[in-house]
C-alpha cells in the first residue's frame, strides 16, 4: 500500500503544550493529536511512499528503538487511523 498525505496547505498544525491541534480545511474538522501522529504527517508530506519508506524517513530523524517489524505494525495502525480521519490516503 502506498500512503499519500493530505496536501500541507489543507492542514494547520498548532502546538498546544504536549499535544497538537490540527485543523483540516477540507473537512472543517479539528483533531487533537499526540506524538507520533504529527511526525508521521510531516514525514509523509515529503511524498507518497509505503510503510518501509516512511519508516526509513522517520528513522533518519528519530532514534527508533523498536524492532522493525513492531515499528511497521504500529505505523500501519496509525496510518489506518489517519486514513479514517481523511488526513492520509492509502493507494493499492
Amino acid at each position: 500500500m502506498t500512503y499519500r498525505a493530505e496536501a500541507p496547505d489543507q492542514i494547520i498544525v498548532e502546538r498546544l503544550g504536549a499535544i497538537d491541534a490540527l485543523y483540516h480545511r477540507r473537512s472543517g474538522t479539528t483533531h487533537l493529536v499526540a506524538a507520533p501522529v504529527p511526525q508521521i504527517l510531516e514525514a509523509l508530506g515529503e511524498g507518497a511512499t509505503d510503510v518501509a519508506g516512511l519508516l526509513a524517513r522517520l528513522a533518519a530523524r528519530f532514534d527508533l528503538d523498536t524492532p522493525d517489524d513492531e515499528a511497521k505494525a504500529a505505523l500501519e495502525q496509525r496510518l489506518a487511523e489517519l486514513i479514517d480521519l481523511g488526513l492520509v490516503r492509502g493507494e493499492r
Binding site: 498546544l16 503544550g17 504536549a18 499535544i19 491541534a21 487533537l32
Partner: peptide, 8 residues
Amino acid sequence: VEQGEAFV
C-alpha cells in the same frame, strides 16, 4: 490546566 485540555 494545560493548553490542550483548555482547548478541548
